[in-house]
Write a protein that binds this DNA or RNA. Structure first.
Ligand code: ZN
Ligand code: ZN
Ligand code: ZN
Ligand code: ZN
Lengths: 136, 136
DNA sequence: CTTGACCCTGTAGTTGCTACAGGGTCCATA
DNA sequence: TATGGACCCTGTAGCAACTACAGGGTCAAG
């Protein structure tokens, strides 16, 4: 499979595939006589794993650890569990932060009654955290 | 006020203050004989506005527009309202995405029963979106 | 007179890509 | 046989919003 086919098969930008190879996330594939990259099914599976993990918000370094783990099928999987749990906790933390933010922004946006910038309550609120009701 | 004092007064890293000046978000301050930056209260207020807006998640370009607006007190403030509303919508969108992600991650994490990597349901789920119950 | 805290400029690193520029290769059609 | 277009290659630079130096200058206290 050439890089364009792998790109279509996995929904991954060609430049991104070469980037993953460069940073060592994907192994260097064989080359054809014309120096074209030539991929097989294991490459496709690995890239699918990477993309899906990225879609779920894992960082490249987390994915590297997860791949190391799955490359070594005898290893205990508790590290995978730990990485995923920690990531879940981060997502929950982020949701909590954004929820605070959303509430604060809702209050701020609701204050504008139109008029000139000098009297705008939105601009006033942005300039002074003391108008806020929450930490953020 | 020297840059260190402004830094402490606003809770902003010194390098960040210089960065804001470089990109034209803060005006160039006067200099002392020793070529030290010298700030006054208007600088402090402007930086406070920038930091608070950043804390609320606005981008630098959005903040630039908001500052332009507040520099021109006769202008109609509806643009500020539009920027803030659009930002609020983006935050809500992000919360919705992360909530989907959280639910999916919760399912994935809950599947691990321990054991070796070869049998790990977490690793399996990461490698194949068909195990997922939602788009994400 | 030295020590330490502070300041300066300019550049490079971070994350995870994406977008070229400037080439080479391959295959079908005229 | 030539040529056009689709594909591939490497290497570098750009994005956001900082952050972290390196390598220097300034200043006040002891
Ligand atoms: Zn308004
Ligand atoms: Zn606030
Ligand atoms: Zn497991
Ligand atoms: Zn999925």
């Amino acid at each position: 499979m050439k890089i364009g086919e792998l790109s279509r098969a996995t929904g991954t930008n060609i430049e991104t595939i070469r980037y993953y190879e460069r940073i060592g996330l994907l192994p260097e594939p064989d080359r054809t006589a014309a120096n074209y990259r030539s991929y097989g099914d294991p490459h496709r599976a690995r890239l699918t794993f990477v993309r899906h993990s990225r879609d779920l918000g894992f960082t490249i370094e987390e994915i590297r650890s997860l791949l190391d783990l799955s490359d070594d099928p005898e290893r205990d999987c508790s590290e995978a569990d730990r990485i995923a749990s920690r990531h879940l906790a981060q997502v929950e933390e982020k949701i909590a932060q954004l929820t605070l933010l959303r509430d604060e922004l809702t209050r701020i946006v609701g204050r504008c009654r139109g008029g000139v910038a000098a009297d705008c309550r939105v601009i006033e609120a942005l300039g002074d955290h003391r108008h806020c009701e929450s930490a953020h």
